[in-house]
Computed example of a mutant assay.
Amino acid sequence: MSTILITGAAGRIGTLMRPRLARPGRTLRLLDIEPLQPGPGEEAIRASVTDLAALTEASRGADVVIHLGGKSGEAPWERILDTNIDGTYKVFEAARRAGVPRVVFASSNHAVGFHTPDEYPLAEDAPPLPDTYYGVSKVAGEALGALYHHRYGLDVICIRILSCFPEPPDQRALSTWFSPDDCARMFEACLAADKPGYRVVYGVSANTRGGWVSLKGAAELGYRAEDDAETFAAEMFAERGELPADGPLFKHLGGQFTFPDLDADSL
């Protein structure tokens, strides 16, 4: 893939991926509402995923769109609807209008956040059980991906990302960590896959305390996780202590996103 349009390129994952996806002969076209300073092999476009005309123009000549843009956590319904749901529709529609053959959509485990440990490893075809409006937006994005594949022929890969940070941010993330390097390996697998069609896969590293979700679909794309959050476990437990395995953070895949303080009336 020689030209990659990345929406939400100024966000956390976009920032982590820029140096990891850079290659000789590859152009990273970075789109965000925040200003970006492009480096070698990069182009910057200041635009919103809610602007269909700007998205369509930005998509022209791209070989793939990696859609990271949108609200990255829970928010009032109106904001989720505008940015995460309507914005994702516009990303797919812009890709179709511009003739982009492939979209890689950053979905989330929160699309299936109310599933429980008795179902682990959670399969790629597990029914949607979103834990928040944010989770609903990821279910909607996966459904849009299916529509744009089956109706218009786009290759669409939806990655249900668990916890992508430079290091695991807390004890629970020792099970859900998706290292930046493994995340980049996942994106490279999505770029290289021959005629993937429509797929939903999970994005997580090879964590010793993992096994919460299936990596079968990701492996079929060519993804091989190399990192393990256990590297950080001893230091983290020394500083913060261990969490009980039957504690509230472990009752659902979505963790704290299932807690009452994210109810609509609390936002």
Rank of each mutant, 00 (worst) to 15 (best):
S2C: 08
I6C: 02
I6A: 04
T15E: 03
T15G: 13
L16G: 02
P19G: 03
P24H: 09
G25R: 05
T27S: 08
D32P: 11
D32N: 09
Q37C: 13
P38N: 12
G41I: 11
E42D: 11
E42S: 14
A47K: 08
A47Q: 06
A62C: 11
A62G: 03
L68M: 07
G69V: 05
S72Y: 02
E74C: 02
R79E: 09
R79N: 10
D82V: 13
D82A: 15
D86A: 13
D86T: 14
G87D: 00
K90S: 01
V91P: 02
V91K: 07
A95Q: 01
A98M: 01
P101K: 08
V103K: 05
S108W: 07
N109F: 15
A111N: 06
V112I: 14
F114L: 10
F114K: 06
L122P: 00
D125V: 12
A126T: 05
P130H: 03
D131R: 08
V136W: 08
K138C: 05
K138A: 01
V139M: 03
V139Y: 02
A140R: 09
E142K: 03
A143I: 15
A143L: 15
R151A: 15
L154A: 13
L154K: 09
V156M: 10
R160V: 05
I161K: 04
L162M: 11
P168W: 14
T176A: 10
D182K: 05
A184M: 04
E188L: 08
A193T: 13
P196D: 06
R199T: 12
V200P: 00
V204N: 04
A206D: 11
R209G: 00
R209E: 06
G211P: 01
V213P: 02
A219K: 11
A219I: 09
L221H: 10
G222S: 07
Y223V: 12
A225M: 04
A229D: 00
T231F: 11
F232I: 09
E235R: 14
F237K: 13
L243R: 14
L243P: 05
P244H: 12
G247A: 11
P248H: 13
L253F: 04
G255L: 03
F257I: 01
P260C: 07
L262H: 09
D263G: 15
A264L: 14
L267C: 13
